[in-house]
Design a protein around this nucleic acid. Structure first.
Lengths: 240, 240
DNA sequence: GTCAACAATAATTTCGAGATTTTTTATAAA
DNA sequence: TTTATAAAAAATCTCGAAATTATTGTTGAC
């Protein structure tokens, strides 16, 4: 079969936020709505009416319904039988609990990853750190333009760190928690109040991991997560 | 409005396994299919065609589709774009990884639960242990009849143990892993090979928790989970 | 003036048919 | 006999409308 370059999605062509081409309309709808929730275009607690979503994204009711059901599974959307869907709410308590739980999971994964890491893992890590450093340097000049790209590379770097952890279930759980954190992180990025040398923190994690120093890496990563919490907490309380 | 005792679901009346009345057809379909997967009526790896599911359960295509999407979120079903749904496969590797990860999560939740437990928690624990003990005694006579009830009360007891853990996210993650374990556990229950005093193990956990002995409770619970793994592993390898 | 029952409106949920894609089967060439 | 191509069949995916349920607004009685 030859490659078909023509986009075969018709309804999706109407929606403004369309970063990636998806294999099915449900996937496209899922990613579009997910992006809007993560970036705040759909506010926490907001009711998700089908008529509104139809106009905004251009998908049919069944397609939207399945996309929302996926998002419920990722805990980005809540649903109550016969009463529709809502964007999952955010709160300081949830952020604190989420961060604590993520730290618990992520440090265990990091530990196992460092112990099991091979040359290929080191290669992925070096590569991801390099790409992240590049976008971090640009971020100070034009913040909003590179935010999606920064999140993507930040995600890649953190994933590379734990990518040698052999437990599929630990990865699965971490993925859920990480996506939740991303939501809070983006809130604190758009209106950042605390100046912070994130690059230095990333470099410390990178160095400790490559040196195979489990204890140091976990300590640094733990502090990194905690610091992220305190920054996000400040933003959330300041907004009130 | 007065209470309406008549079942308002029409299509669902055809399906044989219908334990609970659901608020929506999607929920009914979700629970019916989930039950069939957990009990083995739908085999691991089996393709889930809509025509087959329509005949078997009597729901419409969209309803089934959403129910399957929910099950994908619970990792009981896998989906590949444009190629449909399958029952999630089982394997010895997955079981080992799952058990290890569940132990990691469940012991942490148990630790926090014992430290935070109040009188209400003790009450729930005593009650759940009592109910579990009753059904355990009956289980030796008629195994198949009480299996659903045993699983239900076993679930209640293990949930009661960690119910005083304040972390919602830890509970959420534990729920995912516990449901997965239930699937393997039911396989090893129908064709059990190793005689085992499960009641004594449960009693040891119960006593240690009520005595607020964190270390002993975690040790006993850890051994309980490990022993469950070894039993299930024996069944899975014997089946080959 | 307050509360409850009832009607009107709006939203969600469900279904079946049509469009698109994948898989299978048949045919022909090497 | 094997491989490639193409038609046919089967399955999934998507849509819009009908049915069910929740919400809102109004009227009437106490």
């Amino acid at each position: 079969m030859d490659t078909n370059a023509a986009p075969n999605v018709t309804a999706a062509a109407l929606a403004p936020p369309k970063p990636v081409a998806a294999r099915s309309l449900v996937e496209a709808a899922h990613e579009a709505i997910r992006h809007e929730i993560l970036t705040g275009g759909l506010a926490p607690g907001e009711k998700l009416r089908f008529e509104m979503l139809r106009k905004r994204f251009g998908f049919g009711a069944s397609t939207l319904r399945e996309a929302l059901t996926r998002l419920v599974g990722e805990a980005l959307v809540t649903s109550e039988e016969q009463k529709g869907f809502r964007v999952a709410p955010v709160s300081l308590e949830d952020l604190a609990d989420l961060t604590r739980t993520r730290k618990f999971i992520e440090l265990e994964a990091l530990r196992e990853s460092i112990l099991n890491g091979d040359d290929a893992w080191e290669g992925r890590l070096v590569s991801a750190f390099h790409r992240l450093s590049k976008v971090e340097a640009k971020l100070s000049s034009g913040p909003e333009l590179q935010q999606d790209e920064f999140e993507h590379r930040n995600n890649e770097f953190h994933h590379a760190l734990i990518s040698a952890c052999p437990s599929r279930w630990l990865h699965h759980l971490h993925g859920i928690l990480y996506q939740q954190s991303e939501r809070y992180r983006r809130i604190s990025l758009v209106n950042r109040v605390v100046p912070r040398d994130v690059h230095a923190e990333h470099k410390a994690m990178f160095d400790a991991a490559l040196a195979r120093n489990v204890e140091l890496a976990c300590q640094v990563a733990g502090e990194h997560i905690e610091r992220t919490l305190s920054v996000m907490a400040k933003v959330l309380t300041a907004g009130r």
